[in-house]
Write a protein that binds this DNA or RNA. Structure first.
Lengths: 357, 357
DNA sequence: CTGAAAGCGCTAACAT
DNA sequence: ATGTTAGCGCTTTCAG
């Protein structure tokens, strides 16, 4: 019944639980010296530093994050605020942004707090700010006039927005170059001779949707043309709405010759609708889309492969986290505005427009 | 240049930054009384409590989470440890578990720390434990003999496993009733007269895969039958492998008459393979699968609708979080073992077996 | 180069 | 019913 081997293990266990005080005691040094040695403060000779580091490692010592953050006034943690439904809906690029954020946060030795909300996001943001549980927050999908920006500035909680808003205040953001992407897509179709183009856009409350609508029109204007008044559809970013919208427009006596889709999901719906009407993509009908590089749904894998403006929403996520952490650590005193480039990838989904009537 | 209106605002801002000391001072009470009043401790009369609560609300006061957690010895935060790739791969049920966890964590007023790892999960778990940044952790996809369970027990970090392992030690888990689900699916096919059934299972290192293999054989044994030696395929849980595996088995001279799939993703691949070989599901070939209720890929939406054992992986996520929090708060001193039920939903993907040869 | 001591903001014994 | 006091474990002046 004697547990000789267990004793040494329990000893090690105890060591694992060690705090700074114990460690200092064992080393015959003061807490402050040990603390400084571990943080490689100047003025600690290499020899003692090594001794301390070795002892800490042996003891499996890590500073208590709660005590440390109380002392230094930072939690080394950021939050991602998002509507819970973005984790529940099947078709969103949210998880890909999250993957990017996770990666960067980990690389910078920060932690990521997931902060979902249902209904009142402002309340959640206020709570994050006043309880000081995080050093900063990432918010997503800004509205044309987004009240969160004013709120966060007022609360003095560092933040970065995924996307842009039209508000006057200063704020940092990371955004894809949506505007120009839609202009390129539109221009491409126009240059192939298409005139009756339908743009399947997103819901009108979001700024990026407005921006895309504007750049769609800009591409026409640049060529001395004007789109039809009902050329732009403001619908949600799903396969189902892409399908429904396309079917409706195909069955219209004024059938378009080309579609621009805001997302690969919508494009998938458009392909399905075309299939059902017996129309061949890249032959009878042209389709292009914007492709955020969402995992598992690439324009390259469409049949036929889909011409698209390609970006990486995951790297947008990485940028969001990196910029926020820089902001927190004051490496970036000014608001940061980062617009990520896209690439136009030509594939087989675009045909020359048939000579009209 | 005088900022009269701004002054009042800055005053309110200042109030927002209020701490317990300031609040106590304003109220003419001691910190402890204010603290107790806010936590509705017994022995604080309703009148003062109301006064304190009102003042706190007006000031936008929230206890500093870092100070509080240092004082009470709990962070009121749990972590989810997972391989980063589960956020990057297109086909996983991970996000659905996450949605469930998020929901429950929020409901219990806890926070959720996302703790991805690449490579060495043990190191991450050690860090979580020694830095005391969270009160507990959820781990997923246990191996048959999973070393994390021993580690976490040794570290004395409360944890719950999504799934089971064969290790001897005590641990809490939430798991779907995988074993019996596969037995039911197999039994169903056997009762329809099928004898040459191929089970497309997962990768062999995971316990649930072994359990499913065993219950597949159990269903045969219960009817005095034995499956063919190569009846079970151990492959990954994706559409692509479902497709490839099905094609290979279909092109074998010994073609099976039915498939059991471990996931809807695999089943989707099987459907595609059957389509390409001109076989009609529910007529020429029978297919069943286990359906975790992943968002956007339901067995009910297959064409034809797919007979499946249905569970909700999201509610598994909820249970995981609730149990862990109970464990942390000592509401559940004993390890908790929760096996979630499933439902067998009959649809149109199963036909009576053709009389053999 | 190292140690002593204060304090981050809160909670909880221990008084009264 | 309320106040006083002593920490929680760390960082960081301030002394030596």
């Amino acid at each position: 019944m004697i547990e000789v081997p267990a004793r040494e293990e329990s000893k090690r266990l105890h060591k694992n639980a060690a705090d700074l005080k114990t460690l200092a005691l064992e080393l015959g040094l003061s807490q402050s010296t040990v603390s400084r040695a571990l943080r490689a403060h100047p003025g600690i000779p290499a020899t003692t530093r090594q001794r301390v580091v070795a002892a800490a490692e042996a003891a499996g010592y890590r500073p208590n994050a709660r005590a440390r953050s109380l002392a230094i006034g930072r939690a080394e943690t950021i939050a991602l605020s998002f509507p819970l439904e973005r984790l529940q809906l099947p078709e969103t690029n949210f998880v890909d942004v999250l993957a990017g954020i996770s990666t960067a946060v980990t690389r910078r030795n920060y932690s990521l707090l997931l902060s979902p909300f249902q209904g009142d996001e402002a309340a959640v943001l206020r709570k994050l700010a006043s309880s000081k549980s995080v050093d900063g927050v990432i918010i997503t999908r800004p509205l044309v006039e987004d009240p969160r920006i004013g709120l966060l500035n007022q609360l003095r909680l560092p933040f970065v927005v995924h996307g842009r808003s039209e508000v006057k205040e200063a704020y940092s953001f990371v955004d894809t170059d949506n505007d120009n992407a839609f202009e390129r897509l539109t221009g491409l179709l126009l240059d192939y001779g298409h005139r009756h183009i339908v743009a399947i856009n997103g819901l009108a409350q979001f700024r990026y949707v407005a921006a895309r609508a504007a750049s769609f029109r800009r591409a026409f204007a640049a060529r001395g043309l004007t789109p039809l008044p009902d050329a732009i559809e403001f619908v949600s970013m799903t396969e189902a709405t892409g399908y429904e919208t396309a079917l409706r427009r195909l069955d219209d006596p004024q059938r378009p010759t080309a579609f621009i889709c805001g997302s690969v999901f919508q494009a998938r719906g458009v392909y399905r609708a075309l299939g059902e009407r017996g129309l061949k993509v890249g032959v009878d009908m042209s389709v292009v889309c914007h492709d955020d590089g969402v995992r598992g749904c690439s324009a390259a894998d469409f049949v036929p492969p889909l011409t698209a403006t390609a970006t990486s929403i995951r790297s947008a996520g990485e940028q969001l986290a990196l910029i926020l952490i820089d902001l927190i650590e004051q490496n970036a005193p000014e608001p940061v505005h980062e617009i990520l480039p896209f690439e136009l990838v030509l594939r087989d989904s675009v045909a020359l427009a048939q000579p009209q009537r």
